[in-house]
Design a protein around this nucleic acid. Structure first.
Length: 265
DNA sequence: TCTGCATGAAAAA
DNA sequence: TTTTCCTGCAGAG
């Protein structure tokens, strides 16, 4: 599920497979053939995640930029790589390990300047130690836009997607429709800490769980999927906290979910 | 087995 | 505002 936690988890998992090793690269699908040729034979020096972006640094200031988008996926394995099937954008082989990339929004060669340009338009990433929450707050407290839209804006906060948007707002008891400039600073501080907490848990688990253990076992209605979220994709079901029907509405072209009682306007 | 929806974001219209 | 990248899964039948 590619929100920020997925990207940081991938960077962590790929480092021992790639860093310090020369790779051979190929693009069976053909859409990254030139790039793959450029990467082949180079040693991976570092892998850096930022928000939903991954930067693989190769020797000679050659960077591979990957953005998974909605469908992108890495598959890894050891030993003989399987026969390429379907649309395989990129296969990296390092020693005995192989990494297959399918369906990414971005898979391209970058210069350091290209990377800096991307980073320049991203807000702070709550998963990074160097993140400065004041940069996000400066945008939020000056904006008439709804907080539910601001949280999805990668230039405000990097790494939050539709699941974390819904869940962070629920846990903060904040209406998604509240304009950014009307969000109390102490609520913002709470949200920042909650976001860091939830994203870190997501990196550890490799998936998103935003509910407390006791809430997962205290269902207030029939669970359609699971108990991992308070409101996300629980449209029409009773709120886990108060029983009010969870509502949904499009915001920033994605389904937003919220509890009108726990998150009053 | 089939169908529709889904975590994102940029390009195209 | 619509299309596109491409895959996985849940729910229906």
């Amino acid at each position: 599920m590619p929100e920020g936690h997925t990207i940081h988890r991938l960077a962590r998992d790929h480092k021992p497979l790639l860093v310090g090793r020369p790779v051979s690269a190929g693009s069976p699908q053909g859409r990254f053939s030139t790039g793959a040729e450029m990467l082949t034979g180079r040693v991976v020096e570092q892998i850096e995640p930022y928000g939903k972006h991954l930067f693989y640094g190769f020797e000679g200031d050659v960077l591979l930029h990957v953005h998974l988008g909605l469908y992108g996926k890495w598959t890894v394995g050891t030993g003989p790589a399987p026969e390429p099937r379907g649309a395989l954008r990129l296969r990296l082989v390092a020693d005995d390990d192989w990494l297959d990339l399918r369906g990414p929004t971005a898979c391209e060669l970058f210069t350091p300047a290209d990377r800096d340009a991307v980073l320049a338009r991203l807000g702070p990433d709550p998963l990074r130690k160097d993140a400065d929450p004041d940069r996000a707050w400066a945008r939020i407290c000056a904006s008439r836009q709804a907080i539910g839209a601001l949280l999805m804006d990668q230039s405000v906060l990097a790494g939050i997607g539709n699941v974390y948007r819904a869940e962070v707002l629920f846990r903060a008891g904040l209406s998604p429709f509240r304009p950014g400039r009307e969000v109390p600073e102490r609520i913002w501080e709470l949200m920042w800490e909650e976001t860091r907490l939830l994203l870190r848990a997501g990196v550890r688990a490799g998936s998103i769980t935003t509910t407390e253990r006791e809430d997962r076992h205290r269902r207030t209605g029939p669970a359609r999927r699971d108990d991992r979220t308070y409101v996300y994709r629980r449209h029409g079901l009773p709120c886990r906290r108060c029983g009010t029907e969870v509502r949904t509405q499009l915001m920033v072209a994605r389904n937003l979910f919220w509890c009108p009682t726990c998150q009053p306007a």
